[in-house]
Simulated scan of single mutants.
Amino acid sequence: MLAAMSGGVDSAVAAARAAEAGHDVTGVHLALSENPKSFRTGARGCCTVEDSHDARRAADVIGIPFYVWDLAERFREDVVEDFVAEYEAGRTPNPCLRCNEKIKFAALLDKALALGFDAVCTGHYATVTELPDGTRELHRASDAAKDQSYVLGVLDDCQLAHAMFPLGDTLTTKGEIRAEAERRGLAVAEKPDSHDICFIADGDTRGFLERRLGRTEGAILDESGERLGTHEGAYGFTVGQRKGLRLGHPAPDGKPRYVLDISPVENTVTVGPAEALDVTALRAIRPRWCGAPPTAPGTYTAQLRAHGGETQVRAEVAEGELRIEFAEPVRGVAPGQAVVLYDGTRVVGSATIAATDRSTAAAG
């Protein structure tokens, strides 16, 4: 078994548990940074030279072989460039899902299988259940507070057959995971968690995009098309955003304004009241199913962001797309985001939001 070791506490404990369970484990750290000699800024990164050293020390303590695999070019093409292109097109991507889909359970898994490994183990909080017929299902972690099944919703049944998540079926707090790491002698026991986007070490997404896409002044409009202000790049906004609009005067009713729509062609950002964000339905493309796709319309729950809650929906697959109607209107839904469908704790699959229907005349 190949254990993906980021240099953090979760992946180190997962590798240790896999080895303790009797698996023949080899640790591997993925060198994903375009500048692998860079050092961590605060607690944000997860692919710096420091992280590689931390992963190697953990593997030494566990007593397993360890290697560093350079997937930086693949990561740049499939994750970073995709991230930039999505924002340039006015959409809001989730790079963690793309990394799991394209890197950890595609490039890494393919290489692992080619070398004779039978599975990839990670420190994600989720569970894989094997059914009597040999097929597998992806479920939420036992501890809902740490569940990461949303970012794994891109895995298909073949990938699930070669995935192992040793942390997913235990009701342990992060403090207990750290205590376990300390008992095992792992120096990463007190290492801070990584946050935000790993390839934007300083956390300044707008600055990162500006460096890649440049500044292009455009108009901030209200729902009637009246110009309220200017921006320096529509890519710096996302649907539902409230802060950073820098409008010179308040709305007539004195209420906050939110981003309702982004048009990269016209380079405009449309803002309006919170109620104009209410979404009643959506259409999502490029569905990926964690097993067999739904064959008829049905009632499910959906999750729209990594740390968001569930909402009841009616969903169906039509013309290769996932179409969802919400039982109650929801807000903060942006094209480019992933919607992950659940049946109880089981992950049915995920798709990329292409368009939304709103309860007002605001465009979706």
Score class of each variant (00 low, 15 high):
residue 88 E to S: 08
residue 269 V to T: 01
residue 88 E to D: 14
residue 338 A to W: 11
residue 66 F to A: 02
residue 309 G to A: 14
residue 18 A to V: 06
residue 203 G to W: 00
residue 167 L to P: 08
residue 115 L to M: 10
residue 226 E to H: 04
residue 209 L to V: 00
residue 223 E to I: 05
residue 87 Y to D: 07
residue 342 Y to S: 10
residue 158 C to A: 15
residue 307 H to L: 15
residue 248 G to K: 06
residue 7 G to F: 01
residue 273 P to G: 04
residue 46 C to P: 02
residue 196 D to S: 15
residue 337 Q to K: 12
residue 54 D to L: 04
residue 105 F to M: 14
residue 260 L to W: 04
residue 101 E to S: 14
residue 299 T to S: 11
residue 44 R to Q: 09
residue 299 T to Q: 11
residue 60 D to I: 14
residue 57 R to A: 12
residue 114 A to G: 09
residue 83 F to W: 01
residue 153 G to W: 01
residue 271 V to A: 00
residue 301 T to G: 07
residue 190 E to D: 09
residue 88 E to Q: 10
residue 40 R to Q: 11
residue 197 I to F: 01
residue 71 L to K: 07
residue 181 A to Q: 10
residue 283 R to N: 06
residue 56 R to W: 10
residue 107 A to F: 11
residue 13 V to H: 13
residue 91 R to Y: 09
residue 281 A to L: 02
residue 119 A to T: 13
residue 307 H to R: 15
residue 257 R to Y: 03
residue 95 P to F: 10
residue 290 C to W: 13
residue 6 S to R: 07
residue 47 C to E: 10
residue 275 E to A: 05
residue 10 D to Y: 02
residue 142 S to A: 14
residue 92 T to W: 13
residue 239 V to N: 04
residue 355 A to H: 12
residue 318 A to L: 07
residue 230 T to N: 14
residue 308 G to A: 11
residue 70 D to P: 03
residue 128 V to M: 06
residue 213 L to S: 08
residue 114 A to D: 13
residue 289 W to F: 06
residue 43 A to T: 02
residue 40 R to H: 09
residue 137 E to P: 02
residue 51 D to F: 11
residue 210 E to Y: 05
residue 248 G to Q: 10
residue 105 F to T: 07
residue 42 G to H: 00
residue 215 R to C: 14
residue 13 V to S: 13
residue 231 H to P: 03
residue 131 L to Y: 06
residue 127 T to V: 14
residue 228 L to Y: 02
residue 171 L to V: 14
residue 274 A to N: 03
residue 160 L to D: 06
residue 266 E to K: 05
residue 87 Y to G: 03
residue 313 V to Q: 07
residue 318 A to Y: 10
residue 251 A to W: 07
residue 273 P to H: 04
residue 18 A to I: 03
residue 262 I to S: 07
residue 136 R to D: 02
residue 164 M to T: 13
residue 343 D to S: 13
residue 21 A to V: 08
residue 163 A to Q: 09
residue 274 A to G: 11
residue 223 E to M: 06
residue 309 G to I: 12
residue 245 L to Q: 11
residue 203 G to Q: 02
residue 135 T to R: 14
residue 329 P to D: 01
residue 292 A to V: 05
residue 290 C to P: 12
residue 107 A to D: 08
residue 166 P to L: 13
residue 202 D to G: 00
residue 311 T to D: 11
residue 348 V to G: 03
residue 93 P to A: 03
residue 282 L to A: 00
residue 134 G to P: 05
residue 200 I to Q: 06
residue 155 L to Q: 09
residue 99 C to M: 13
residue 163 A to G: 10
residue 228 L to T: 04
residue 130 E to D: 01
residue 188 V to P: 12
residue 5 M to K: 08
residue 117 F to V: 03
residue 25 V to G: 10
residue 5 M to Q: 12
residue 205 T to M: 06
residue 193 D to C: 08
residue 226 E to F: 04
residue 48 T to V: 04
residue 307 H to F: 15
residue 219 A to E: 15
residue 204 D to C: 00
residue 66 F to S: 08
residue 161 A to L: 08
residue 161 A to K: 00
residue 4 A to E: 15
residue 304 L to S: 01
residue 136 R to K: 09
residue 289 W to G: 00
residue 222 D to S: 02
residue 101 E to N: 11
residue 170 T to M: 12
residue 194 S to F: 01
residue 11 S to A: 00
residue 15 A to W: 03
residue 304 L to P: 04
residue 346 R to C: 04
residue 144 A to N: 12
residue 232 E to T: 12
residue 361 A to K: 02
residue 342 Y to D: 08
residue 50 E to L: 05
residue 184 R to V: 00
residue 82 D to R: 14
residue 248 G to F: 01
